[in-house]
Design a protein around this nucleic acid. Structure first.
Length: 204
DNA sequence: AAGCCTCACAACCGCCCGCTA
DNA sequence: CTAGCGGGCGGTTGTGAGGCT
C-alpha cells in the first residue's frame, strides 16, 4: 500500500522554477510567511507546485541572505572538520556556515571535496608509509609489523591522517627523552583522530 | 561544426521523526 | 496509545553548460 504522496502527481508542475514562479513564491512568503503549512501554501499562493518543492525552493534559493558561488578555503576547512565530526549531517554542517544551505554543502562535498579527500588519502598513505618505515626501523620494529600496519589497512584508514606527516614529525624519537617507545608501541594511537570506520563511511 | 563527455548545480524522491488529535 | 500528517533531511537523479575530440 505505502504512504500517499504529499501531492497528486500530474497535477503539479515539476522541473526548474521560472522567474515568475519565483516571484510569486517570494512575494507570498514575505507577505504571509508559510501560512501555516507548506503543503497548503502553493494553493493559497496560486502555484501549481508541490508544497515540498516550494519549501525547498525557498530555503535553497529565494530565502534572504543566501550565499551563492564559490566556497572559500576557510569554508572548505570547516566542512572537512564538521564532516569528520558529524558525517553526512549536512543540515548540521550548513548551520555552521552562514548563508550556505544543506543542499549547497552537500553538492559541494559530492562534486569537489570528496575528490579532494580521496586525493589527500592517497597522498597521505604514500607519505605515511615512507615515514612510518623510517620510524619503525629506528624502533627496530619487526618488518612484519610494518607490513601488517601499512598493507592491511584500507586506504581510508590513512585518510584519517590528513595531518599525518605533521603528527608523525611531532612524535618524539625513541630514547630522545620523550615517551616515544610507548607512543609508537601503540599503533592505534597515531591513526586516530578519526576512527577507521568513520573514515570508511566518509569515502566509500 | 558536431557529437560526446564531464562536471556542477538544481530539484525530486522517499524515509524518518515529532507533533497532534 | 496510536495513527496520520507535515516538516526536515539525506540520497539520488535530471539538466544544462562548457570542454574535448
Amino acid at each position: 500500500m505505502g504512504r500517499a504522496p504529499c501531492c497528486e502527481k500530474g497535477k503539479v508542475k515539476k522541473g526548474p522554477w521560472s522567474p515568475d514562479e519565483d516571484a510569486i513564491l517570494k512575494s507570498y512568503v514575505e507577505t504571509h510567511g508559510t501560512a501555516g503549512t507548506w503543503i497548503a501554501l502553493p494553493t493559497k499562493a496560486g502555484l501549481k507546485r508541490c508544497g515540498k518543492s516550494c519549501r525547498l525552493r525557498w530555503l535553497n534559493y529565494l530565502r534572504p541572505n543566501i550565499k551563492h558561488g564559490d566556497f572559500t578555503e576557510e569554508e572548505d576547512n570547516v566542512i572537512f572538520n564538521l564532516y569528520n565530526q558529524y558525517g553526512s549531517r549536512w543540515s548540521t554542517i550548513a548551520s555552521q556556515l552562514p548563508g550556505r544551505t544543506d543542499n549547497d554543502v552537500k553538492n559541494h562535498w559530492n562534486t569537489k571535496l570528496k575528490k579532494k579527500k580521496l586525493f589527500l588519502a592517497g597522498k597521505t598513505k604514500l607519505q605515511t608509509q615512507t615515514h612510518l618505515h623510517s620510524k619503525l626501523s629506528l624502533l627496530h620494529a619487526p618488518e612484519t609489523e610494518f607490513t601488517e600496519i601499512t598493507n592491511h589497512r584500507p586506504i581510508s584508514y590513512f585518510a584519517g591522517l590528513d595531518n599525518s606527516v605533521d603528527q608523525l614529525e611531532s612524535f618524539p624519537e625513541p630514547g630522545a627523552g620523550g615517551d616515544g617507545r610507548d607512543q609508537w608501541g601503540s599503533m592505534e594511537h597515531w591513526g586516530c583522530d578519526f576512527p577507521p570506520d568513520m573514515i570508511c563511511s566518509m569515502l566509500f
